[in-house]
Each structure stands twice: as C-alpha cells, then as structure tokens.
Design a protein around this nucleic acid. Structure first.
Length: 966
DNA sequence: CAGTGAGCGAGCTTCCGCTTGACTT
C-alpha cells in the first residue's frame, strides 16, 4: 500500500509536524494527496500571565498558577497567543482532509504536542500517530504505512513535568520577590545552573594557591638533529633520591600538600641549589618505554557538543551557535540542530564513508561503519545527530556559504566525516634520564613523546580543548632515538616556579556540558538557560567566563537553606526517573504531584512510595515551604562576611559593603554604619578585605566640588537613594551620636542640574535652604521655602503649599508667598486635572464613569470602585462597555481578596497601620536609581513595586520582632 | 545606602520546552 495508490483513491491526508522546514522536506517525499503543515512547536500551554487566564477562573485562589491544585492538579490550557493563526490554518486544512497524521517528534514533548493538537482541532476524521527518527524518503514512507496510537501515558508524563515546573517557578519566584528583589526568578533548571556557577566561585574564594618549583633540563645526545631525530630534548625533574617531586596535582585547595603525601616539595631556594649542584653532572638514559598509542574519532555532533566546539574553535556563544545552525537547517544544509542523539542514519553513514574514500582514500575507511551509542542518560533520541543533510554531503566549498555559516558548516562536515574514519595509531615514548649532583643527590628527569604512524581521523578533525595545553594531546612530539645506558649531556638546567590555580570558572559551553551530564535541561533550552541567568543578573560574562553576581549568592543561599531539596543536583535526575515510571504506567501523576506540592504526611502511603524522591518519613510539600516565610531572614540571606567585621550586603540597588557601627547605647537609635557601593561587575572572588577597606575609605561615585569658604568643609555631590544630592563632609571628630550630634547639611539637586555639571556655587546655594521668605503679618509666623519629597514647597507652621518651580525657592517674594497662602490648599494634582475620558453611566452603580490618570497609570472609576486599565486596553479606543466590565470585575474580586489577605495578618494589625507611612519615601528615588542602573526593559513598574514590597517587609519585620518579645 | 510635608485605585513580575517569524531599534 504505497502513498500513490492511496492518492488514487482520492483520499486527502493532513500531516502535521513540528517544524516548517521539516514540513517542506517531507512534502517532497510524500507527493500529492498529502498536505504537510507545521504546528510550529507547542500550540497550547498554561496561561503565562494573569491576562491570559480565562475569565471564569479569575476569582479562584489557584488561578495565578494556571493549575487547580485543589482538584487533582487539573491544568488550564490556553492556545498560545502567537499560535492562534497557525491553529486556525490547521483547522481549515483539516476541514478539507479525510485523515489526520500527527507526525510530531517521538519524544515526551512531541507526544504532548500531538495530544494538544487532537484536543484543539477536534478531528472528525480518523487520526493516526506517525513517527520517524530520520528524514529520508524511505523512513517517511515507512512511517506513513505503520502508524500507531497516541501514547497517553507519555503525554501524562509530559504534563506532570509541565505542572511541576510551573508550581516550582511560580511559587518560589515570589519568595525571592519578597525576600530579595522584585522580578527575580527561580526554576528547576535555572536555579541549579546558577547554583553550579556560585559553588564554583565559592571554591575559588576558598582556594589557597601553593607555590612549587621544579627543574627543566635540556639534554643532548651528541648527534646533530635532523627531521626524524631532534638530537636534543627537554625533560622535567621527576624524582630526587627516588622521591617523587611535587607537581600541581599533589596540592589540595588549601595551598598545602594533600594529606599523607610523601612527595618532595621544592621551594625556590631548594630548586636553585639543586640546579647548581647538577651543573656539569654526567647523565645517562635509564629507561626507554614505548607504548602503542591509539585514538578513536569523536561521535558526530549533538546540540551540546556542537555548542562546545563552536565555542572553542569559532568563539561563538551558545545562542549564536544555535542561530547560525538554525539558518543552515532552514536552508537545507544540515539536519536538525536540537538533538541529544549521536546516531547517523544509514544514508548519512553511506555518504560519510563515500566522502572518506574520495577525499582521503580507502586506507582511511574502516571495514565496518562506526556506530555511536548514546552517552546521554535521559536522551530521547527523537532526531539524528547534527550532520550535513542529504545522501551526498556537500563539501564546504560546494555550499557557496560564507562567514559564520560557512565556518559552522565546515565544523559539522569535518566532524561527521571524521566520525567514519579509522583510528589514529602510533607510539608514545617515555625516556627517563638521571645523574648525580655534586652534593651526592640523585636526580631523575623524564620526557615523553608521541609519534603518530597513521593519522586516521586526525587528518580530518582535531577536537578543541578548554585547556589549551590539552590540545597538544593530539599533536606529535618526537624524542631522539636513544637506548638505555646512552650518555647524555645536560646543556642547561633551569629552575621553574609554578603556582596551583583555582578551579576555572564555567564558560557557556562548559556549563551546558555540565548540565547535560546532570540531565538538566534539554537541547532546545541550553542556550536560553544561559540567557535567563544572564538576564536576571545572576551571572555576567567576563570574556568567556561566567561570573556569578553577589545577587546570585543571596538567591542561591536562600534556596539552599530553605528549599534545599529543590536545588539538589539530583532533583531533575530523580524527576526524570519518576516521569519514566509514569510513562511506563508504573506510577501515577496526581499522587506524585500531591506529594511534591502538599507533602507526604501519611508515612508509607501509596503516594509517598510512588513519588519516590524523598528520603525522610515526613516530607514537607512546596506549599508549606512558600506559605510560612517567617523563618527566612531577608537580612541574613543577603549578608556575607568579608572579614575585619565588614559585611557584604546585597541591597535592592546592588551590592555594598558595610562596617556596622558599634552597638547602640541603651535606648539609643542604632547607627547605619559605614557603607560603600560595590561595582556590579566585581567578581566575588576578588572582594578581599583589603579591597573592602579601600572601598569604605573612599566612597565611590562622589564628585568633590570644593571647599565651603565659610566652614572650610569639603562639599561633595553624590548619587543617593533619592537621586543626586550635595552634602558636606564633617570633620572626623564631629559627634555623630548623642546630644551634641551634628548632621551634615544636604540638599537634592534641582531637576535641571546633573551630578557631573553641578558646581560648588550651586551646591552652596542649594544647601542654604530652607530660605526664610518672611513673616506672615497676620499670624506672625515665619514662612520658609524648602525642597522636599514632593518637590519645592512653602511652609508656615504646619501649613504647607507646593510651589510650581524649583527656582521659586530662591526668587519667591513675601508678597507672592502670602498670595499663595490666601488661596485654599490645593490637594493632589489628580483632583485638579480633568478626567482623560468620560464613558457614560455605569449600569450597576448608576454613577458616571470616567478614565483618570493616577499613580499607577490610567484607571476607570465610578467614584466608588476603581480599576486600572489592563495592558491591552487603550484609552483612545476604550469603549464604555469595557469600562463597565473592568469595574464589574473589580467589584467581583475586591472583597474576596481583602478577607483572604487579612486572615494571616491578624497578629500585626497594630504595626500594619504604620506601614503606609513608611511606604512613600522610597518611591521617587527608587524609580530614578533603578532606571539609571538597569538597562533592561520595563524599568518603571519594577521600581514602583519596590515600594510596596519594602513597606510590607517592614510591617512583617516589626510584627515578628513584636512576636519575639512576647 | 539622605531627609523632608499631602494625598491618592493596584497589578504584575515568575517556570520549562516545543517551534519560528513579526516586530522594533
């Protein structure tokens, strides 16, 4: 039953694959009668943001998660916004078809995509599941002939994974917003990736270097060198009086020899003395040892190895490697680039072998094709290895490619061809030579060389190495032809000093490699994992190295301490095992999720046994961990001792060092202590006590403006929490506490001024504020002009009036001031402003509805209920109906939310009232500074949010403090 | 992380895995 005979019957089939490029290729293999279209990846998912949650679930407590945790973790699926048009297209095509083939990838995600397609398209025609692992005509036609059923268990496993990731991400991230900084994130993959980078940095910080010395000698045979025999060779000192000389490997991370080590540790003096004593000594060859050398080619590329090699050889980052590969794939030059398989199809093997014979000759071709078994533990092998496409590989020159695409193609081509070539073989030789020093000590030197007699695959491809020294591995090194007993002359013997080095930082490529080995992440996500941790500010790049920020130390520290199980390196691996059992029908999704989320209280229950990833009797669920946050001390998780009593703290505006002030006297207010900003890009292992002292001694970012001629004090301009300001430096002996405390005069810059242009004159003028404008003849009260939180204002006793312009602080006359005071106080600029739009009368409250502009942007109000416009709403096009709808929504959820929130806050009712007062100050300046520091998008909302969280935190803190004293 | 004087509506951030264009700079 060939496809063509089916066509003759007039049946029309719709085949859906994941990728458009794949659809194009397959179309050619199936011919007429088949319509091949792509789903373009997943088409449905849990709602990502609040706006995507269907209205009917909006009031539910779990709606935020998109998963009904109270009812068997029922997920809410919505068609992805960017896939709606594609889904419609598929629906139309299906309407004209007699049969549907779901030909998505044969792995967990692919099976799920097929299931979602079936759910969304609701086909009325027969549905078949069709799978293939290579895109060749034979494979595709065979796949069409032998379809199978959808594997619902595999879909269950995927859904379980999806829900777990959602619960983890959307429950733990908010903990970070509350305890560290808004907009941060946590997730099964990114948090472990960040932890790896942080732990490596911790090792580097703890590392103590060791210095050790040895000798290098140049030995001559007495013969003149030629092409096959160099005549001389270099060798390194290995033993003295039979005792091995220490090398880097003999030292631990503490800078001392490893426990129980018997090796000889030479320092500079000892090395130089020995070198001198060996001068003129007679040497001879003690042994010549020859071993066969054999090396097999590397497996063809999969995603991670491609990323590693492109990084080492071409200097590409993971993201650009994938972008270039995507182009090559789309234009038909290579097979699919997101794969965990190293398997080549039969066609590919044949093509590679043909090319080996053609380019290198039959001598380089092994008798049988080489097979590469998958080394990746959780590999799903839905695709082939990454290789040149087609049944005949185009040489790089034949492709007509240029630039990065050419270079990446060449790399892939070489690696693929080399993978079907013979081993490289040769001999490795070790020559030992010894002599007696003038002081009687015996010194032995060793040299090793390698001769390759048959290059095999090395003709085509040599793998790059992260460590440049290791790259020499594949190179030849010839030693002179010597035999035991041959006399040698030591031409030169030099003492060399070495130091042990801390473990290297991860690069993008080595981190991806580590993640793959630990079964964390998938080929389609490796590049984006890097992007995520870079975007969040958890790591930054210094050259190719990934350096963790202090922020990541705080975040990882918190997660390790309070969510240890979730950032365990084996968490994902265990999850994979459990998912496999779900896919095999040996375990159930719901009990597994229940145990993860609600914990397992009933010991030995079926659920506990099935989840299988805990060790204790009682396993606290995620929900419990994120509900009770009292145990997480925000200050503690963001503080790290540096030494000398100095603490590094991660603040909302970046890292800073602090030397806490001495404890406050009885009843006195604690002093803030001495602080200094730490550059955002300072690698944590470079923050020494010395550097911290230096930073504290010379606060960074100060602009010295000069000296106040009247007081002799230094005047500086700084960037503070509330924006740029000027202040004076008080003499060291000024009392800062107690009764006679003197505070420095400070003043915010006017908006027209900037830190780098402000002059001493400006500063002195600003610091002269508040200015006495005059006395109100009516009351005898003094009227002053000053600059405050809300801008310039006049003050008379407790009565204040805002001024329009900052300059008025200096120019306003008493008459003008009295004029202002003669008018009633104008409250709030919003009140004076006319509404942005009038919408008519609300059907429920029967009040006029208008759109106003407020602190949080435009909102609709009927004078009683207020509702902020949503992201998609536009003032211009907003209809009255939409306005009523927003108000109705707000009325519906308003009271429910209030009671829900009040319940846990009972204890702190008294302190909670104070919070709003504290809330305001940080607002304006926080916005400014955040905007200045962060270059990423969406600055304003982030800064505004800070306010609320800070206030809440303050309230929470004071309440817990109060609890403590009871 | 400076220190001041009012009053006003919250809503959103975030996960991992599949896939590409459609957007704007």
């Amino acid at each position: 039953m060939s496809p063509t005979s089916e066509t003759a019957k007039g049946g029309r089939r719709l085949v859906i694959v994941e990728s458009p490029a794949k659809a194009k290729t397959i179309k050619g293999y199936l011919g007429p009668g088949y319509v091949v279209e792509a789903s373009v990846g997943h088409i449905r998912d849990l709602p990502k943001v609040a706006a995507e949650i269907p209205a009917k679930y909006k009031g539910e407590s779990w709606a935020r998660l998109g998963v009904n945790v109270d009812q068997d973790f029922q997920p809410i699926y919505v068609v992805n916004a960017d896939k709606k048009s594609q889904v419609n297209k598929l629906k139309e095509l299906l309407a004209e078809s007699d049969e549907l083939f779901l030909a998505t990838d044969e792995d967990r995600e692919g099976e799920a995509i097929a299931w979602h397609l079936q759910e969304v398209l609701k086909p009325k025609v027969p549905v078949r599941r069709m799978v293939f692992h290579e895109i060749t005509k034979d494979a595709i036609q065979a796949a069409v002939r032998s379809p199978r059923e959808l594997n619902k268990r595999l879909v269950d496993a995927q859904e379980t994974r999806r829900i777990l990731d959602r619960l983890y991400g959307y429950e733990v991230s908010p903990v970070l917003w509350k305890k560290v900084m808004p907009r941060l994130s946590a997730g099964r993959v990114q948090s472990v990736a960040t932890r790896l980078v942080v732990e490596r940095e911790r090792e580097r910080i703890a590392f103590r270097s060791a210095e050790y010395w040895d000798l290098t000698g140049t030995f001559a045979t007495g013969r003149t060198g030629d092409a096959t025999d160099p005549g001389t060779f270099g060798a390194r000192l290995t033993t003295v009086d039979g005792r091995r000389v220490a090398t880097g490997r003999d030292f631990g991370s503490t800078g001392t020899l490893k426990e129980g080590s018997q090796v000889l540790h030479l320092d500079e003096t000892a090395a130089r003395e020995l070198a001198a004593a060996l001068e003129g000594a007679a040497f001879s060859v003690r042994s010549v040892e020859s071993k066969p050398y054999r090396r097999s080619p590397y497996a063809p590329f999969r995603t991670t190895t491609l990323q590693q090699e492109a990084s080492r050889k071409l200097g590409f980052g993971a993201k650009s490697t994938m972008q270039v590969a995507q182009k090559l794939y789309e234009n038909g030059f290579i097979t699919y680039m997101r794969t965990d398989s190293t398997t080549l199809s039969e066609t590919a093997v044949a093509a590679a072998r043909a090319q080996v014979t053609q380019l290198y000759g039959a001598d380089y071709l092994p008798e049988k094709p080489r097979m590469y078994a998958g080394k990746v533990k959780n590999a799903q092998e839905a695709h082939e290895a990454i290789r040149p496409s087609g049944d005949r590989f185009r040489t790089p020159a034949e492709t007509g490619l240029t630039g990065d695409q050419f270079r990446l193609y060449e790399l892939i081509w070489k690696r693929t061809v080399a993978s079907q070539m013979k081993d490289a073989v040769g001999q490795s030789v070790t020559v030992k030579t010894g002599g007696r020093a003038s002081d009687g000590r015996d010194a032995e030197f060793s040299a090793s060389g390698k001769i390759i007699t048959f290059h095999g695959f090395l003709k085509a491809y040599v793998e790059g190495a992260d460590d440049p020294n290791a790259e020499l591995d594949d190179r030849e090194r010839r030693l002179p032809q010597v035999s035991e007993g041959d006399p040698l002359t030591a031409r030169e013997i030099t003492a060399d000093g070495h130091a042990t080095k801390p473990p290297a930082r991860y690069t993008e490529a080595s981190l991806v490699k580590e993640l793959e080995e630990r079964e964390i992440g998938r080929p389609s996500t490796y590049a984006s994992i890097i992007s995520t941790i870079l975007d969040r500010g958890y790591v930054f790049k210094k050259g190719t190295a990934l350096v963790p920020s202090f922020l990541s130390f705080a975040v990882v520290g918190l997660l390790e301490k309070h969510f240890g199980r979730l950032v365990d390196y084996d968490f994902t691996a265990r999850m994979e095992d459990d998912l496999d059992r779900i896919a095999a029908g040996e375990a159930q999704s719901v009990p597994w999720l229940r145990r993860f989320y609600f914990g397992a209280d009933e010991a030995g229950s079926g659920a506990a046994a099935e989840a299988g990833n805990g060790d204790g009797d009682h396993l606290g669920g995620l929900k419990e961990l994120v509900t009770d946050l009292g145990a997480i001390d925000a200050r503690e998780v963001s503080s790290f001792p540096v030494g000398n009593g100095i603490v590094l703290r991660v603040g909302r505006y970046g890292p800073y060092v602090e030397r806490p002030a001495p404890p406050a006297e009885e009843g006195g207010k604690p002093e803030p202590g001495q602080r200094a900003d730490v550059p955002d890009d300072l690698p944590p292992d470079e923050l020494t006590v010395e550097l911290a002292e230096e930073l504290l001694a010379k606060p960074s970012g100060d602009f010295e403006l000069g000296t106040d001629p009247e007081t002799g004090r230094k005047i500086v301009a700084k960037d503070g929490r509330y924006g740029p300001y000027v202040t004076e430096i008080l003499p060291e002996d000024t009392p800062k506490t107690g009764k006679n405390a003197v505070k420095p005069r400070t003043a915010s810059l006017f908006k027209s001024m900037s830190l780098d242009t402000v002059t001493l004159e400006d500063a002195l003028k600003l610091m002269s504020l508040p200015r006495v404008v005059g006395t109100d003849p009516a009351s005898g009260e003094e009227i002053t002009a000053q600059n405050g939180r809300y801008g310039p204002y006049l003050k008379k006793g407790t009565d204040s009036r805002s001024l329009e312009r900052e300059e008025q602080l200096f120019t306003l006359t008493l008459e003008e001031a009295l004029e202002i005071y003669s008018k009633p106080k104008q409250r709030g600029r919003g009140a004076a402003k006319p509404p942005l739009k009038e919408l008519g009368t609300d059907p429920v409250s029967e009040r006029p509805v208008v759109v106003k502009d407020g602190r949080f942007g435009p909102y609709v109000t009927d004078g009683e209920t207020n509702a902020t416009l949503r992201r998609d709403d536009d003032i211009e096009t907003l209809t009255p109906e939409r306005g009523y709808e927003l108000l109705a929504e707000k009325r519906a959820k308003g009271p429910a939310k209030k009671t829900a929130r009040k319940a846990p806050a009972k204890k702190s009712a008294a302190t909670a009232k104070k919070a709003p007062a504290k809330k305001a100050p940080a607002k304006k300046a926080a916005a400014k500074k955040t905007a200045a520091k962060k270059t990423t998008a969406a600055k304003k909302p982030a800064a505004k949010k800070t306010t609320a969280k800070t206030a809440k935190k303050a309230a929470a803190k004071s309440s817990s403090a109060a609890d403590g004293t009871e």
